Measured scan of single mutants.
Amino acid sequence: MSIQHFRVALIPFFAAFCLPVFAHPETLVKVKDAEDQLGARVGYIELDLNSGKILESFRPEERFPMMSTFKVLLCGAVLSRVDAGQEQLGRRIHYSQNDLVEYSPVTEKHLTDGMTVRELCSAAITMSDNTAANLLLTTIGGPKELTAFLHNMGDHVTRLDRWEPELNEAIPNDERDTTMPAAMATTLRKLLTGELLTLASRQQLIDWMEADKVAGPLLRSALPAGWFIADKSGAGERGSRGIIAALGPDGKPSRIVVIYTTGSQATMDERNRQIAEIGASLIKHW
């Protein structure tokens, strides 16, 4: 067993022997301040990774656009098919120029040779490549099948209805392509620590998230040296922004954090800054 596999296998073990965790309302004060600064709703939840206990939450059962955070769930569904012998990570998928959609920095470079399922998941999570996500959605049967996968996990809230990039439209009061912070946090925890996926697939999923290259201005910008984070960000229309993450000190994750916002007129930089400040408060009061 590799060191990384050992780390993920012992996530519940280490967490069980940690000192009790206590909620700190100071972080919620910052979440509410972010709402004021952005002029928009902000949803927040913080779960203990081992027990699933909610440590703090704000608007945990209000719907927010998922945006690209759905790509972690998508690759979880792909990995479940791999575990069941219905898919192979090494299978190569070929596609054409007509398949390319807006923001496809990886797939646009491989029109000639195609990409493997493993490479597509890596591109979808680490670079948020939209064509990679659409190609992977095709392998599982489309958005409705991802929703069905989530329902089978016990998540009857999260739903995907459309493809990239239309799913980022974020129309107010439109339930399409949305989740709730509580539902997303619980589902992410199941994917990373539950028995739904094999140990190898859980490790692969967290490795992809740990290698995320496009979430630097968010929670990662607030992390002290030595902290662990595996995350996936999302951005959408109407001032929408979000991030889902597993993080913790001492090089291992111990909490799940989900943050979503929508309806702001603020710039992307300002949305990023507010999420980073929430992260800084979380870490300060850990």
Rank of each mutant, 00 (worst) to 15 (best):
T158C: 06
E62G: 00
H156F: 10
A222P: 09
E61Y: 02
S128M: 14
P224F: 08
I93Y: 01
D99G: 10
I206V: 13
P249R: 12
A225T: 11
H110Q: 01
R162F: 12
I45H: 00
I259M: 10
Y95A: 03
T139Y: 06
G263F: 11
K232I: 15
A132F: 06
L219V: 08
N152K: 09
V257Q: 03
D212C: 06
G154K: 15
H151T: 11
I140C: 12
I229H: 05
R91P: 10
D129H: 00
E166G: 11
K252G: 10
S221L: 06
A222C: 10
C75A: 15
W286Q: 03
L120S: 01
I243C: 04
I54H: 11
S128Y: 01
V42L: 12
E26R: 13
S264I: 11
Q204M: 08
R92I: 03
K284N: 09
M268K: 03
L218G: 06
R92V: 06
L223H: 02
Y260M: 04
F70T: 08
G194I: 12
A170L: 09
I229P: 01
R91E: 04
P253V: 13
K109C: 15
L282K: 13
G248D: 10
V258S: 09
S57T: 13
A123I: 15
L137K: 03
E46A: 15
T139K: 05
I140F: 11
I93P: 02
E175W: 14
V257K: 06
L205G: 10
K71A: 10
G154F: 14
G234Y: 09
G239Q: 05
A123V: 15
H285E: 06
R241F: 09
G154Q: 04
G76A: 03
A211D: 08
R81S: 12
P217K: 08
V72Y: 15
I243Y: 13
G154T: 07
G226I: 01
P181V: 05
P172V: 12
A133L: 02
A266P: 07
G43Y: 03
Q97V: 14
D83C: 06
F149M: 10
E46L: 13
T131D: 01
G141Y: 15
G154P: 08
F58R: 00
G263Y: 15
T107W: 15
R271T: 06
E35D: 09
A211H: 03
E195N: 06
H110P: 01
Y95C: 02
A225E: 14
L28E: 10
L188Q: 13
L150R: 14
V117A: 06
V29I: 03
E145N: 04
P65R: 02
R41A: 08
Q203L: 07
T193H: 01
E46M: 13
Y44D: 00
S96F: 00
L28M: 15
K71S: 03
E237G: 09
I171H: 03
D250F: 03
R176P: 08
I256E: 09
G142S: 05
K71Y: 00
D155A: 04
Q88K: 03
E210H: 09
A40M: 14
P253K: 14
D161C: 09
M67H: 12
P65I: 01
A170I: 09
G76I: 06
E62R: 00
E35V: 11
N50L: 10
T193M: 04
D155W: 06
K53D: 09
W286N: 01
S233Q: 04
D177A: 08
Y103I: 10
Q88R: 12
V78E: 09
A77Q: 00
A200H: 15
G242D: 12
M180C: 05
T126M: 00
F70D: 12
D33R: 03
W286G: 04
L282F: 06
I275C: 14
W208M: 02
M180S: 07
G194V: 08
V72M: 02
T262F: 06
A266W: 06
E35H: 09
K144E: 07
H285V: 06
A34F: 05
